[in-house]
Amino acid sequence: MVATHTSEERELAEMIIAALNLEDVSPEDIDPEAPLFGDGLGLDSIDALEIAMEIAKRYGVQIRAEDEENRRIFSSLRSLSAHIQQHR
């Protein structure tokens, strides 16, 4: 069962879909608690960097995507959104 998005999560999901040109994916398809990277959406390390750049551009929040310590932040839409809300 897919958990419901907060409005911030939905906005972030829309941003990711647009930035990565994800084919045939709608915000509802991104489970806020599922892993963002790996098999589900088929995102890789370059996508993480692109998302980090878009987040810096839109929210003014800097996150180094390649940093080991930031793995947890990028682990799901929910954790990424929570991090942005805390730091914006």
């Binding site: 990565l20 370059i46 996508d47 960097l49 692109e50 750049m53 810096a56 551009k57």
Partner: peptide
Amino acid sequence: STPTLTSPIRFH
């Protein structure tokens, strides 16, 4: 305008 906001996908 914003050099530090260069898209990594477009750069590569």
